[in-house]
Every structure is written in structure tokens, then in C-alpha cells.
């Protein structure tokens, strides 16, 4: 298994990593038994995600996909962030080994979970906006 240079770059120099104190929404997906947890914080102003950060327990690909996902949604409208697919994260990283596709799914889930939390905090039902958070097909672990 070999990682692309981009994966190694985002793993070695993760963007937007760390806890956020004044977040508008936070979502956590994965579980420790499977070996990866992603927590995504978002700061929303108007309809825009003005800031984003992540904390990840997991392998190199899990850290790199988290990092890349934050870059892809930072400064974007919520509606656009919700359209981000795991494929787009993978492509932005120049691909992932087949056994690591699961990590990109987690990144997509983490964004949706953070947005859901944002709407829930506003007293808005997130289900019609965010939709179903896809379950990871790789291990079927509950979000």
C-alpha cells in the first residue's frame, strides 16, 4: 500500500487541525473499535462556513482525508459543503488505496454530521436539509 504525495502531505502537515472553541456545529463519526473517529467543527456566518477544523483518531488516510475535507469546504456555502462526496475528497488527494476508501466516506459523513448539529442547535430539523448520512459500506459501523 502506497499513499500519494498529496495524502502524505496532508498527513504530515494537516490543515485546520485542532479543537475549535466557538463552533456553530460539531459532528463526530466512526468509532474507536473500528480504529477511526473523525470530529469536525464548523463556524457558520450567514450561510457560509467561515471556519472549520477537525480532530481525528485514525490512520494516515483518515487524517489526510479529514484535512482535505476541511480545505474543500472552508469558505463555502453550507449547501455546497453538503454536496461534497467522498469521491471528490479522494480525487483531491490523487486517490487512496482501495482499503482506505472507507476513510473518505468518514470525511463526508463528518461534514454532514457537523452541519446537522448546526441546524439542530438552531432548532431546525436537519433531516430534510442534510438528508441521510450514508453508512460506511466498508465496515457498517454506526455513526
Amino acid at each position: 500500500m502506497a499513499y500519494s504525495e498529496k495524502v502524505m502531505d496532508h498527513f504530515a502537515n494537516p490543515r485546520n487541525v485542532g479543537e475549535m472553541k466557538d463552533f456553530s456545529g460539531v459532528g463526530e463519526v466512526g468509532n474507536p473499535k473500528c480504529g477511526d473517529i473523525m470530529r469536525m467543527y464548523i463556524k457558520v456566518e450567514g450561510d457560509t462556513i467561515t471556519d472549520v477544523s477537525f480532530m481525528t483518531f485514525g490512520c494516515g488516510a483518515a487524517i489526510a482525508t479529514s484535512s482535505m475535507a476541511t480545505e474543500l469546504i472552508k469558505g463555502k456555502p453550507i449547501s455546497e459543503a453538503l454536496k461534497l462526496t467522498n469521491k471528490a475528497v479522494m480525487e483531491a488527494l490523487d486517490g487512496l488505496p482501495a482499503v482506505k476508501v472507507h476513510c473518505s466516506v468518514l470525511a463526508e459523513q463528518a461534514i454532514k454530521a457537523a452541519v446537522s448539529d448546526y441546524y439542530t442547535r438552531l432548532g431546525i430539523d436537519p433531516a430534510p436539509i442534510v438528508g441521510e448520512i450514508p453508512e460506511c459500506e466498508e465496515c457498517g459501523c454506526s455513526v
Binding site: 504530515a12 473500528c34 480504529g35 477511526d36 483518531f57 485514525g58 490512520c59 494516515g60 488516510a61 483518515a62
Partner: peptide, 24 residues
């Protein structure tokens, strides 16, 4: 609180070769 593969990758960046029994 940490996962073995990311540990190995960082060790490798420091020139250290080890192994792990993590799932990844």
C-alpha cells in the same frame, strides 16, 4: 488514544522502521 499506522508513518518520517498490529 492513537492509531498504529499513523504512528508508523510519523516514525518513518524520522527514519525509524517499526511495525504495528493495528487493523489499518
Amino acid at each position: 488514544g492513537i492509531e498504529g499506522e499513523s504512528l508508523l508513518l510519523l516514525l518513518d518520517m524520522h527514519g525509524i522502521s517499526g511495525s504495528s498490529g493495528s487493523a489499518c
